[in-house]
Nucleic acid binder design. Structure first.
Lengths: 213, 213
DNA sequence: GAATGTTTAAAACATGCGTTTAAAACCCCT
DNA sequence: AGGGGTTTTAAACGCATGTTTTAAACATTC
């Protein structure tokens, strides 16, 4: 259906509420009443867009990495893949843009989206990290490290505007491209994984000065 | 003005577009026309809300840390402060919630918000990290490490829904509280800072297999 | 080839929004 | 007490939205 294809970018650009069915239909070259006829209402169309994304993501996730790589290289490729998906231009990246909107204003489809798109990535990361950490590393630490990876990658999308303003254009072009960032993030995580024992038992001065305000 | 105080949480909860002046005025107990009379229009009220946040943040930022702490503890307190600000409940946290919305759908006030709220935090972090890293660490690496800190902290807000679904409630309550997360994040960054030399010259198999798709 | 079911088209409808208006209420000062 | 400037109130306006309606175009079947 042309409507679903045209609705995706529009929903991603404006969000569910700001996106108008009139713009979607104009973009798709169909009449306004079509959405009511085929999908019941505006949200039915949205639900269908999400289902289309799910199908695509599932197809993309089965692409497995070559199994003869070192854990370090597997982690690095994971990070690089996430970053390219995050930072791809608006033409390619409207899908992750839509997911971002779901994170900020979850609708009814949020739960299944996490289950079918985020959890596989999360579990893959945990597997790779388990190989990088010393044997016996706790499940907790593996999960926290996985979230550290995702968090660092995600920031270059949700905080793209902030980064653009904090880092001058010259340095941004030379040192904050996908390749450099992927090296940095995987390097940070590898350094942390090698010190996993220290991380498990870290103690600090902690509540000596409580700044919870 | 009662209007500004009441408008903050409403704008934070629904975003600028979904928030209605009728709800704001009902919450504030004033008439609908008040916003037009005092602030010109809806956006004028929004601008005033942002200015109020700025004043509060500036007052909060001058609270300096005790200077006799080790760099490790200063970093740890920085992280803990950011996390508590991020994860504070809706009653206290509507300000950072509003900033989050500005990051996703920037309005005209975004630029000054970054300049007066994000950059000071960023520079503070860079200073602390410079003490943790070996002498001669590049500016680029310091900035990437600072963004790694911010990214990891921020994820527990923007990805709060995802985390809630990925981590079972039991483990979340015991191991993903502010104190544990602060220890983890500062520990990761310290491990990375101590390996700064390796990070600067990291090389990987890189483009041997190109997954940019 | 006409009848019937399905899809598209244009227009109108109902609703909620931000904003404006005009009058009433209030406040302060002489 | 009274008048002038300021604030608050209730109602209405204009507009854009999602949705519905009604009829026309199309496709399919006998």
């Amino acid at each position: 259906m042309r409507l679903v294809a045209a609705a995706g970018p529009v929903f991603a650009k404006h969000g569910f509420d700001r996106a108008t069915v009139r713009e979607i239909c104009r973009e798709a070259g169909v009449n306004i009443a079509a959405v009511g006829y085929h999908f019941g209402d505006k949200f039915g169309l949205y639900r269908e867009v999400i289902r289309m994304i799910r199908r695509r993501c599932q197809a993309a996730h089965v692409v497995e990495l070559p199994p003869d790589l070192s854990p370090r290289d597997r982690l690095h490729l994971h990070v690089k893949m996430m970053l390219t998906q995050m930072l791809s231009g608006d033409d390619r990246g409207w899908e992750s843009q839509l997911m971002m909107r779901e994170m900020n204003q979850p609708t009814a489809v949020f739960v299944e989206m996490v289950e079918e798109s985020f959890r596989p990535t999360f579990e893959n990361l945990k597997r790779v990290l388990a190989e990088l950490c010393p044997a016996g590393t706790s499940e907790d630490l593996l999960e926290k490290l996985a979230l550290s990876v995702v968090g660092q990658c995600l920031y270059y999308r949700v905080g793209a505007g902030v980064v653009r303003q904090l880092i001058p254009e010259s340095r941004r072009a030379s040192s904050f491209d996908v390749a450099s960032l992927a090296r940095h993030i995987s390097g940070v995580i590898i350094a942390a994984a090698e010190n996993a024992l220290a991380l498990e038992h870290s103690k600090t001065i902690e509540d000596a000065l409580d700044i919870t305000r």
